[in-house]
């Protein structure tokens, strides 16, 4: 027994050498007041006149935002790019990769089936218009595997020649796709590209899901929202957290995607500071966790309230 204790003490001494930091976690709520939530979506899109669809802006267009970058300012000496993310509709109703999901619960099919998901039926258009999610960005140079987020463009060669060109959910006028070609295409899309899951929003068919922007779930009329980010950086010296709305897709090329680039030319849209003017970052009030609020520096009603668990190794709340 004595030998065992000596062994354990020795082990504890040696096991501490070079033990890495295992990460931190940010639990947050992103919410907005009287601004149009649609304007937060990246890459930026604008409603078509008549509300029949959307036009996706292109890089270089005025007002174009490609993605968001979350930064930590550390100890007043510099910054670290923690992660890149998009705000996306929870589901895109005309997304080709959602058209051939087999739907065993559907009751309005004729014949024996199989029945496929009909994304034009309610409530899914509402989920596109009124429910937004925060998801991981994907590299911007993935070629055809990257949808470019405009289903009307990137899905063109997957359309059935007899398909309409302008879908309209108000009249149940849908795009029709070639099943074999569409399924083959969707199977090879990069796993980092977000494709929502109409059966379980929190487990997307593809991509990384961080959570839901605060709002009302249009299907249930209940308040919904909440984000969770895993951060590999040690945040112990953080003095600020901020989000940049970045117009330059080149910052997300495969080569640049994981680099710790300095903030680019994008606009800071959310900011919180330990000893500053905007928002706040409180490291003292609660034992083991920090609390903060990012605000828009120009006073737009956009807020990001967060709790940081700075060291998961010492945290007794397990996720």
């Amino acid at each position: 027994m004595k030998q065992l204790l000596i062994f354990l003490v020795s082990l504890s001494f040696f096991s501490c050498q070079g033990e890495p930091f295992h990460g931190s976690r940010i639990i947050a709520n992103l919410y907005f007041a009287n601004i149009d939530g649609e304007t937060l979506i990246t890459p930026t899109r604008v409603r078509d006149p008549g509300g029949s669809g959307y036009t996706y802006l292109q890089p270089g267009d005025p007002g174009y935002i490609d993605h968001y970058e979350l930064y930590a300012g550390i100890d007043g000496v510099g910054s670290v790019r923690l992660l890149n993310f998009h705000i996306r509709p929870a589901l895109e109703v005309h997304h080709p990769c959602l058209q051939f999901l087999e739907d065993t619960t559907r009751v309005d099919g004729v014949g024996e089936g199989p029945f496929y998901f009909n994304m034009c039926r309610p409530p899914y258009p509402d989920v596109e218009k009124y429910m937004f999610v925060v998801v991981g960005a994907s590299p911007s140079d993935l070629g055809t595997a990257n949808p470019g987020y405009n289903f009307l463009d990137w899905g063109a060669d997957l359309l059935d020649p007899s398909s309409v060109t302008t879908p309209d959910c108000a009249t149940n006028t849908r795009l029709t796709f070639l099943q074999e070609a569409t399924e083959a295409f969707c199977a090879q899309i990069d796993s980092s590209v977000y494709i929502g899951n109409p059966f379980q929003l929190t487990k997307p068919l593809s991509g990384e899901f961080f959570g839901v922007v605060d709002g009302i779930d249009p299907r249930t009329n209940l308040a919904i929202g909440g984000l969770s980010f895993s951060i590999l950086y040690d945040l112990s010296k953080v003095t600020s957290l901020f989000v940049v709305a970045e117009p330059d897709p080149a910052r997300l090329t495969t080569e640049n995607f994981s680099l710790n680039l300095p903030p680019g030319a994008g606009k800071v849209v959310l900011m919180s500071e330990l000893e500053g003017y905007y928002g706040y970052l409180d490291k003292e009030s609660f034992e083991g966790v920090w609390h903060g609020l990012m605000v828009h520096p120009e006073g737009e009603p956009l807020f990001f309230e967060y709790t940081v668990y700075p060291d998961l190794d010492t945290d007794n709340a397990w996720f």
């Binding site: 082990l11 504890s12 096991s15 501490c16 050498q17 070079g18 033990e19 890495p20 930091f21 295992h22 550390i74 100890d75 000496v77 510099g78 910054s79 670290v80 790019r81 590999l232 950086y233 040690d234 010296k237 710790n260 680039l261 300095p262 903030p263 060291d311 190794d313 010492t314």
Partner: peptide, 28 residues
């Protein structure tokens, strides 16, 4: 217990730990 609670890497001024390594921050 010991394997999950011990964190001994100290990164110097201007660096931050990422997955067991000290990497530089972006200097303004």
């Amino acid at each position: 217990l010991l394997g999950t609670s011990c964190h001994t890497i100290e990164c110097g001024e201007g660096t931050v730990e990422l997955d067991g390594e000290c990497v530089p921050v972006n200097f303004p």
